[in-house]
Write a protein that binds this DNA or RNA. Structure first.
Lengths: 143, 143
DNA sequence: TTTTTAAAAGACAAAAAGGTCTTTTAGTAA
DNA sequence: TTACTAAAAGACCTTTTTGTCTTTTAAAAA
């Protein structure tokens, strides 16, 4: 579905938000361990997330990552677009540069609804909505 | 959606079948040009397709690629599985190794139907079914 | 104010994906 | 039976993705 960078970003941010909800502020070591991702790579990805303003970080003792509660929720769509671009959201399943109702590829009719479902999913869901659904998920450590 | 190799394989084979339906047997140069893919790379991919028994080739003058009509249709699923494996067909949207109803990832419920729709599409459609839908597509040269 | 802690920065490296080029093999036709 | 044509084979190259490692910066605590 998504590339590794998007995947780790998603998992990291959901984990951070989930911990924030319990008034905790996890650091990279903990995050990487919990989401089962390479630590240095995860650190680099989170750096980007901070620079993009998606999440905040605090250096030094007691530091870590946290979301600014005054900000609006972060949709998966924003996240995906800024990491890997919109290819999965508007690309043609057959790889044609110009595929539309007038010049449909042979997959056009069948793939259209799938692409729309993906768009709906990533537009509606946010890091926050996922973090709330994940209470059980994290409890059983099933990453 | 698919990686480049799958994409070019798909487009090549659909083009070959489409030409076969008109009793033509295209060669690599023509195929690569028509589907707008790099010729040498396409050649390599078609080599694999021949070795896998998905399509036949004839060397020398008047040669080219063609499907064996006595064989059953080639589903997109077979093609995809043999080129890029089943990740898009059974992978978890959140990247969890074990994601199921008992240990659902936060995307589980929403992504499930999408994955099923993809599976349905690639199981039902074949190179032959796409080649038939493509009469207009190729006519307007919209690859 | 020095030490400690933890993120930031960025150079570097490995692996995978995507692609090219040259030579060989196998048919066809003169 | 030689010349030509077109696919097969495989070595090689480039770019992108996926990572690692070392040094620097900033905050907190002793």
């Amino acid at each position: 579905m998504f590339n590794k960078e998007t995947e780790y970003a998603l998992r990291s941010l959901v984990y951070i938000q989930h911990q924030n909800y319990q008034n905790l502020r996890p650091g990279i070591e903990e995050i990487a361990k919990e989401i089962e991702a390479p630590q240095a790579f995860t650190a680099k990805i989170l750096q980007r997330m901070v620079r993009l303003g998606f999440v905040n970080s605090i250096k030094g003792k007691g530091g870590g990552f946290h979301f600014d509660e005054s900000k609006s929720e972060l949709s998966l769509k924003q996240l995906i677009l800024s990491i890997e671009g919109g290819k999965i959201l508007d690309g043609c399943g057959f790889g044609m540069k110009h595929c539309d109702a007038n010049h449909p590829c042979p997959l056009h009719d069948q793939y259209g609804p799938i692409r729309e479902a993906i768009n709906k999913l990533v537009s509606e869901e946010t890091i926050q909505s996922l973090a709330q659904k994940t209470n059980q998920a994290f409890k059983v450590l099933n990453f």
